[in-house]
Amino acid sequence: MSTHHLLMIEDDARLAQMVGEYLGQSGFSVEHAADAQRGLARLQGGAQAGLPDLVILDLMLPDMDGLEVCRRIRAMQGAAAQTPVLMLTAKGDPMDRIIGLELGADDYLPKPFEPRELLARIRAVLRRRTEGAAPQAQAMRFGSLEIDRDARTVAVAGQPCELTSYQFDLLVALAERAGRVLTRDQIMEAVRGRELEAFDRSIDVHMGRIRAAIEADPKNPKRILTVRGVGYVFARQQD
């Protein structure tokens, strides 16, 4: 049974209680922060209290927009910035989803939602991180780009690149298949997220974020190339 600890930043106390009770039956412990300030303070104090394994973040909070909360999490120092974020979006607005992913959310779920789907998505995000942390071969190098699967870090010319855990997994999936054109479905399947029927556009959003981190000119990429009408390919020859 899981022993993962989750932080839910949600102003609806009744919903938070329901989620906590449901996830508790599957072995998760859920800590509740009723507003953005308390949630951010909890993450900033993680060195003393221990960081949560995942944050469930509501988009509509009384004191701050959830998108801004996500941005601030990703701007934190240390391990807190890498905490996976699952965003709850009102009415499943596609634009909210896209912006959330651009700001670094690992996944999203529109309200209202089925508790079973929330549980499945949480497990998928945590599984990607756990499997990605498994022992791997030495770091992959493509010119000045270095991808260290053991440390889960990416650097270009020695300078670290900021990626979410999901974006790191996407980059690894492409790099391990360098020179091979992958469809969006194949990419999602490679990171074991296909069963969740991920929003197809989200792959494009994540690719844009990855390019912004590793490409000298994201608008004219040399590492991750788009194959129109098919998907993406990671170039073998770089720099």
Rank of each mutant, 00 (worst) to 15 (best):
L7F: 11
E10A: 06
L15E: 12
E21W: 00
L23D: 04
V30N: 02
D35R: 12
R38V: 06
A41M: 04
R42T: 13
L43M: 12
Q44I: 10
A47V: 08
Q48V: 15
D63V: 06
G66M: 05
V69A: 06
A81G: 02
V85D: 01
L88C: 06
M95K: 12
E102N: 12
D107E: 13
Y108R: 00
P110Y: 08
F113G: 07
P115F: 07
R116Y: 11
R116C: 00
A120G: 00
R121Q: 00
R121P: 06
I122P: 02
A124C: 13
L126T: 06
T130H: 11
A133I: 02
Q136M: 04
A139W: 05
R149Q: 14
T153E: 09
G158D: 08
Q159L: 12
Q159A: 14
E162S: 14
F168S: 04
D169E: 14
L171H: 09
G179H: 11
V181Y: 00
L182M: 15
M188F: 12
V191W: 01
G193R: 12
L196P: 09
A198W: 04
H206F: 05
G208M: 04
A212T: 04
D217L: 12
D217Q: 14
V227G: 02
R228T: 15
G231V: 09
F234S: 10
A235Q: 15
D239H: 11
